[in-house]
Simulated assay, not measured.
Amino acid sequence: MPKYRIIVDLSDRQLYLLDGNIVIRAFPVGIGKMLTRTPTGVYTIINKQANPGGPFGAFWMGLSKPHYGIHGTNDPSSIGREVSLGCIRMYNSDVLQLKDLVPVHTVVTIRE
């Protein structure tokens, strides 16, 4: 059984899915803007919700830092940019792939 973990690299705006220490997938992401930066640190996925509504696209994965998550978007042009209120945005097709691979309690490291 693979032991997946996620690294979000804010400097290159990529989310990496790792199996152990091997990157097996990379996805482009949108991150927090200057006034609402994405918080760095080590968190875990605490919940998952399909079709959360609003700007959250097709899927939401909440992090152990309250009010922050990894989610889809209804604005695909925002991917790769500093535009969010601190959450990590993904293309809907990418977040749907990721949610099938990572269970609740997956560790998410967000770094500069």
Rank of each mutant, 00 (worst) to 15 (best):
K3P: 01
K3C: 05
Y4A: 08
R5T: 09
I6C: 06
I6L: 06
I6V: 12
V8I: 14
D9P: 00
L10D: 03
L10I: 14
S11G: 00
D12S: 13
L17E: 07
D19M: 01
N21W: 10
I22W: 01
I22R: 15
I22N: 14
V23I: 15
A26K: 12
A26D: 11
F27E: 05
V29N: 08
V29D: 09
G30I: 06
I31P: 07
G32I: 08
M34D: 11
T36M: 10
R37F: 07
T38N: 13
T38F: 12
T40V: 15
V42E: 14
V42D: 06
V42C: 01
Y43S: 00
T44E: 13
T44W: 03
I46M: 04
I46K: 05
N47A: 13
K48V: 02
Q49C: 02
A50F: 14
N51H: 07
P52R: 06
P52D: 10
G54S: 11
G57F: 06
G57S: 05
G57R: 10
A58R: 13
F59A: 07
W60Y: 06
G62T: 03
G62D: 02
L63E: 07
S64R: 05
P66D: 11
P66F: 09
P66M: 04
H67S: 15
Y68P: 10
I70A: 13
I70L: 15
H71T: 11
G72W: 02
T73K: 03
T73Y: 07
N74H: 07
D75C: 02
S77V: 08
I79V: 12
I79A: 14
R81H: 14
R81S: 11
V83P: 00
S84K: 05
C87Y: 09
I88W: 04
R89S: 09
Y91K: 05
V95W: 00
V95T: 02
L96T: 10
L96V: 10
L96K: 14
Q97H: 04
L98H: 01
L101A: 11
L101N: 07
V102H: 03
V102N: 04
P103Y: 11
H105W: 05
T106E: 04
V107N: 05
V108P: 01
